[in-house]
Design a protein around this nucleic acid. Structure first.
Lengths: 136, 136
DNA sequence: TTTTCAAATCGTAATCATTACTATTTACAA
DNA sequence: TTGTAAATAGTAATGATTACGATTTGAAAA
């Protein structure tokens, strides 16, 4: 998802334009990997003195609801990235050093859905962790 | 892993026998699913007044290192269960209502390992979430 | 059995991520 | 320009986890 796409989504969904929201999205569009709330906070604090936790977390949650961001739990801390959007359903390799991701196209659910008679499947998670070529 | 197996592991690894350790393991051997530190704390508090956080968390971590327990992050909280041990490498369906698990034998890594030239793969996670037949 | 001492535990405070809430400010529609 | 709901600031609270000095205890050695 691109920065202006995301800003459009905000507008069409009836949310207000603020420079802070743009800056949050700029932060994420500058990387193609997962980042934490605290990394975002550090980035924003350079520009906004006394930025509120409320602002950071409220917007992270809002963006996630609007599918502008996607998130994953990693080491007990939520990590966020721009949603891959348009693409097919897929999963990620995540570099544990820089947070960058690589798409995994194959989804294991295709092979095993039938193995759960009587079960309701609500969700699944498939992630590979390691080091990307530039972080060896 | 059975209760006495786990107690043996403790002994052979040179750790002391305490009733609290036995009770912690009894708690986990009574369920075949994931439980949180706070659920364990509640269980233990019935018997031990003023039980220390330190005791609970230290032992959870110790048991994890000794492969007596395995753990997973779920909704930002660590969950623990008796290690499936002897079995082949596998994954879990986890019931979001009761925490019980069902083994998934197939591992998606078998199919896609070759898709990561130049990458170092250190770990992976594949979990399915939903409701088991008795929690519909 | 008694002694010894590292391991285990207690009691409690600190930390870290996240959430909550009231007062104030602001985007933007009328 | 103004009215108003939305957004933010400032700060406290919460929940999970970690930390640590003081005390107790399991079990090896005497």
């Amino acid at each position: 998802m691109k920065l202006n796409e995301a800003l459009d989504t905000l507008k069409t969904e009836g949310y207000k334009y603020t420079k802070k929201r743009e800056d949050i999205l700029t932060f994420f569009s500058g990387v193609d990997g997962y980042r934490t709330a605290s990394e975002l906070l550090t980035f924003m604090a350079e520009k906004y003195d006394g930025l509120s936790y409320d602002t950071v977390y409220r917007n992270l949650h809002l963006f996630r609801e609007l599918n502008i961001l996607e998130s994953t739990d990693l080491n007990g801390e939520k990590h966020f990235r721009l949603a891959c959007g348009h693409d097919e359903h897929h999963h990620h390799f995540i570099c544990q050093s820089c947070g960058k991701t690589k798409t995994i196209q194959a989804c294991p659910m295709n092979y095993i859905q039938q193995d759960f008679p009587g079960y309701t499947i609500e969700n699944h998670k498939f992630e590979i962790y390691g080091r990307c070529p530039s972080c060896q």
